[in-house]
Design a binder for these strands. Structure first.
Lengths: 182, 182, 182, 182
DNA sequence: AATGAATGAGTTTTCATTCAT
DNA sequence: AATGAATGAAAACTCATTCAT
């Protein structure tokens, strides 16, 4: 009875999703055809549609996973240094990960759901840093700037995986030190 | 066969390009069909192909225009405050402009040419700020951070056109002040 | 591998066939997918193929059953009034039954076998009425007209299950009376 | 300027529709693929979709045409003998026409719109015969019987294009004569 | 005997591009 | 110069059928 285990079903789903992520990071959502994904994950076209209703559902799922991954990466780091760790994490993750981010952002222009996810994901992740705002600086705007730094680092990492992440983070650290020093 | 003026040819080309930019900012490069562009600019499909060899050329042209526009915006501002003015300019430009940036970046993942354009465009624009790096801070990395801030502001503006650009720039200004103060 | 009783096999086969008939009457042969049938009868896809070589065989079987059912309905009624009883039977059977007839006829356009079945089935059923043809009326043509009335009643019943079958049959009865009266 | 004449567009549309009708009458709506239609009418797949949004729209259009054709056939015949002429018309039309009717009816099981069309089309066409109902016969039911004869003749013509239409109509004529004779 | 995951050929549909007018 | 009807290759998606378990 090919009533296979729940674990196997889960693994299959993930296998397809991983293959899709590879394609998406390489070619973008819309230059990737379903055939590309099928080829990449080595299963038949029909099977992909047993697990996903179509490409849009795969995109949405990839995006959700991506945000969940970001969030967990943050919460698992030490409270105080959370933000800098997040920046460092970009350096250790693969370029594909950063490239996927660019695709997600481009797609978010069209989809309200994706836009909300993207916005909330990041802002929640940085909520904790709010209290660190020194006197004379708008806390809300500061958070936005920090988010911007994070986003820009992703963009540049997508463009150049050789980028010197450590030097980049050092500068940010220095900036934050001077900012919080009274 | 009416032979028209050079000016008319230029105007036609621009008309098509503008329509394409509107569509691209709204739907992304690949969700935009040639028919969409044709509909938007009100000329025939055949005519579009007299001015552009295909969609890819239109994309490349749009991207070049976008970078040229950034560069000229910078060089026209006062030398010293150039960077901050660049950030402020994002607030005054339309959201479509920022959204187009996200599309360009997403596309740059696939195209070496676009990636080079994107990278050079920004880094050249900030070359002038190099000498401002204070002692103890890696100049190269500082530039990258400043670029990152610029990029992130674009992302956030694309997501939320109501974003408080002035407050954002104020924070950046304060950061730069503290950084350059010995 | 549990070897089950012959009765169980027969019941299973009928269970599948009944489910198929429900689907076919509702959606037509070709808008009905095997998955629809599988869902309707509650067994697995694989099992259906142990009983039938494919969808075409199920269709053929359904059609044969349908004709057999018609024939037995007729022969079980009183010899003389056989035809009118056949018409009345349409009123008591469900609309699905009539709808199935329309599907069978549509399919008969493609299949010589189905066409022969359909033709023979009805003409055999009315063979008995041949001797009733009154003088001055072509017996062959009369039979065809009676068959036509039967067929048309099926069509109209498929369209409107509220149709007044009794009034319809009364008219036919009156017509036959006047026809056979010298 | 291939802004071709309105007549040409109309002709193209009809060309596609005619090819579709041929396929539909031969294979049924659902055994006919768009490729079959494309092959039959000799234009490209893309062009078919310029004229029709999909197969369902083609089916609906074919059905509407079919009913319109029936109606006009009736109204163009002499008022009194209208009904018998309608029956005779079936004999002169091609078998494909009758086969198409079976497809339409099968499809009407699924579609409320088609069912309404089918019902109204025929009943309107026979409205005129209402007054012919003799005393002692339910006029409504009589009309239904006449419609049934018409429908059944279509079915039998679809099955056997050699059917003796004249003999069939003679019987119907004789029946009507006896019915109206007091 | 029974399952249902897996297949892959076939379907509908879209869309960048061409070309006769 | 300009049109838009026409193309056809490629895309997304479906579904009858098989087979390992």
């Amino acid at each position: 009875m090919p009533k296979v285990s729940e674990a196997h079903l889960q693994a299959r789903r993930q296998q397809i999703l991983d293959a899709a992520a590879v394609c998406f990071a390489r070619d973008g959502f819309h230059r990737t055809s379903m055939q590309d994904i099928v080829r990449e994950c080595g299963v038949s076209a029909g099977l992909v549609y047993r697990y996903f209703s179509g490409k849009d559902e795969m995109i949405a799922e990839i995006v959700r996973d991506w945000h969940a991954h970001r969030a967990s990466a943050l919460t698992s780091s030490a409270p105080g240094a959370a933000y800098l760790d997040l920046l460092r994490e970009i350096g250790t993750s693969d370029a594909p990960d950063a490239r996927l981010a660019l695709q997600v952002w481009a797609e978010s222009v069209r989809s309200d759901e994706l836009r909300a996810l993207a916005r909330d994901g990041i802002s929640q992740a940085l909520e904790a840093t709010r209290e660190q705002a020194p006197a004379g600086v708008d806390p809300e705007a500061l958070i936005r700037v920090l988010i911007a730094v994070y986003q820009g680092l992703l963009v540049q990492t997508a463009w150049d995986s050789e980028l010197d992440n450590a030097a980049f983070v050092d500068v940010v650290e220095e900036v934050l030190r001077r900012l919080t020093a009274e």
